[in-house]
Design a protein around this nucleic acid. Sequence first.
DNA 1: TCTGGGGTCCTAGGACCC
DNA 2: TCTGGGGTCCTAGGACCC
Length: 388
Amino acid sequence: MQNVFFCADMDAFFASVEQHDNPDYKGKPLIVGGMEGHRGVVSACSYEARKFGVHSAMPSSTAHKLCPNGIFVPVRMARYKEVSDHIMEIFSRFAPEVIQNSIDEAFLDLTGTDRLMGPPVEVASKIKACVKEETGLTVSIGIGENRYLAKLASDYRKPDGLYQVEKGKEIEFIDSIPLKKLWGIGKSTYSRLEKSGITSAAQIRSFSSTILEGIFGKGASDFLSAIAWGKDPGICSMEHKSRSISNEITFDQDVGDYAVLRETLLGLSHQITFRLLKKGWSSKTLALKIRLDNFSTSTIQVTQDNAFTSAEEVFQASLALLQKKWDRKRNIRLIGLGFQNADETGKTQLQLFDDIHEKQNKVEKAVLNLNSRFQNNQVIKAALLKKP
DNA sequence: TCTGGGGTCCTAGGACCC
DNA sequence: TCTGGGGTCCTAGGACCC
């Protein structure tokens, strides 16, 4: 049987949602994220803004220079999540299997559904119409015999695109896309390829696997040769192996004051602990990330015998990690905290946690609420503010 | 170009065990 | 004493994606 996969990818998603919610923004250069006066990058921008050279992940200062009259709005993640849930629900009406790949993108498996649903291109048109009617947004859909081809095809005719990679034309299709634009080939891999004189998928196909492995190692060479032949390198493995939860903060100004770092870690400890518990997960591994004023980044982690059970415990562990990793010679630009290798065993412990730590929990929540309301005047439990 | 925040996966090296 | 080989777990860093 012929496999049929769709990749459905929303066009300029965050920006389109903003334009839909605020009709004044329609047809204008709109930039989401990258607010003036803060360190940051552009999260998304409208096609009108792209004409000025603005693109996502661009430093906001650059975006302001390129597009001084653009409309800059903050990210409203909760709203995008809402729209995302609606879109995913629409997809599930048309495909028996929908795998959400990110907030604005999903893979649909339509293998063997043509008698019931009709030809793939027709189904795709219906999905596009449905999304447009119910949300006012446009989605681009790519169709291929595997998810990798579908993913590339969804990008091929953006925005509002619909493209099917025909059977027998897979390699021709791959070759029509510049090597550096292929999904999974980033800056670093491309520059390594270039150094080996490789600038096309055709060249990758011409090398034996032994030679490729010698240059790039087993993992990378398997990946490269799969995509050069139009095969799926396994871009979405069904089974999650590891789970992590993290939060990080980039300061508006680099910080050398230990007290400020303590306060920040206290807040982060609460955030990640509540998120972990809310999901019903538990974790024994806590990781601290710091980025110094020279942008050098490092991480350190600790694994305990038992899972973390309170924000307080996480906070204390995070302070120990900071002591180990930071020599105080340089100021800190970013600090982050996260759980690694979380699993679902926490589900049974949640009830217990609620009973034992209810009081402490309440205090911690109250502190957190105050902190989020009074950003510049943080409220910290006095006991936690001992001198280091 | 002065570079966010949230993830996933891979790799190399060390510790430790048999 | 100069030393194998494999397995597993952990750590730190790096690449990539949205």
